[in-house]
Design a protein around this nucleic acid. Structure first.
Lengths: 122, 122, 122, 122
DNA sequence: GTGGTCTAGACCACA
DNA sequence: GTGGTCTAGACCACG
């Protein structure tokens, strides 16, 4: 699990870390029960502040994607699976769909693109 | 065209305005050539500062969704249509797809949701 | 002499008119002594306000490119030829040269581009 | 890096700042990777509002001349170099060339002036 | 510390 | 009338 952080991006670093860990879990690269690197280790490896990594882990914990294990480490949680997308992501999807429509894509092209994005995380 | 702004949201107000205007254009509620409300008028209507609306309009202009006619007013541009989603939105789509996968949705459910989002803007 | 005005441009319309008349004179398309269209006629032809055309003509008159003739018309003046570029244009040229340098052009390429621009107005 | 701003100029202050920073990068006075003054610091130094400097930095960022490092500060970007002048600057060059022609300069004189402008930023 | 966002006024250029 | 620019403050998110 190697993180690629873009310091020039508008997306906050902690969010980039959170996103990439989440993507790693979704793709199966990070299996349920697998242990994540310690905060200090990951911070050093990425050249960022420990607080930044801590914030990302905290977010992932709140979302239920990871949990603290008994010995003080952090492990990937078994996915609970709410069965539906949260309203936050649904709203983002509507915006992306509108952008696609304005870019000239028809419904079939957009659906294919979405399937591709879904499979890409496999 | 009525805008609904959430002052408590993490999304900046100017971006909320930009998104809703863009959604309005995509849905056809705002037709090409149609005139948008004047910056001051929209600012007053939304209870927001002029500069905030100005920033949203500036963004939309840069993106090519609207054009400022020098003879006064801002009008909806005819969409040229790049034909593809920008990498920025493609990356966001990958994240949403991963969230959907972790929420327990299978590919078919996700594709249906995406089609719904696309048609929703019709 | 047909003017092509872009209402969506950031360049004011009166300046677009001024620039195109000046370019017409430089290229020889408008010869010294030739009569320019009346303000009202040009305004109607371009679909702009008379005041706008008047402002452009006023500018060109101040710069010495055109003069009022005895019968109330406007004619192209014989070029006086200061022999040097005004500081305003020299400054603009420095900025363009810097942009070219940052775009990766070397001195030869830039000089060739400048000669092309000079000859283009022939 | 000292900026000289002309408050009486028709050129907006934010554009003057943008131009001078760009000229500084082109001349090598500001090297790639070098850190620019903080927005607030530059604003105070120039006796200008923060937002004005912010707008200039935003422009330079969009143009790819600088990048905002999330770990604090704004740095000069390594120039990618499109290899050609944008149409906007090419049009401005045509206008300047025409002005030079009307000022009585011949092609050689103009080319020499352009080389001078190019080398001036060295 | 940094940049990002926002407010409530103001003046100006353009058409 | 329109949009563009600017000021002098303020609060917030990020690292």
């Amino acid at each position: 699990m190697l993180l690629r952080l873009d310091m020039a991006s508008r997306t906050p670093i902690y969010m980039q870390i959170r996103n990439q860990v989440m993507l790693g879990i979704a793709s199966g690269e990070l299996a349920a029960g697998e242990r994540l690197p310690a905060i200090r280790a990951l911070a050093e490896q990425c050249g960022v502040n420990m607080m930044t990594v801590s914030k990302a882990y905290g977010l992932l914990r709140e979302e239920g994607y990871i949990t603290a294990d008994r010995r003080g480490g952090t492990v990937v949680a078994g996915s609970p699976g709410a069965g539906a997308l949260s309203e936050k992501y649904a709203a983002a999807l509507r915006i992306i769909a509108a952008e696609a429509r304005l870019a000239g894509m028809d419904e079939e092209e957009f659906a294919a693109l979405c399937r591709e994005a879904y499979k890409g995380g496999a």
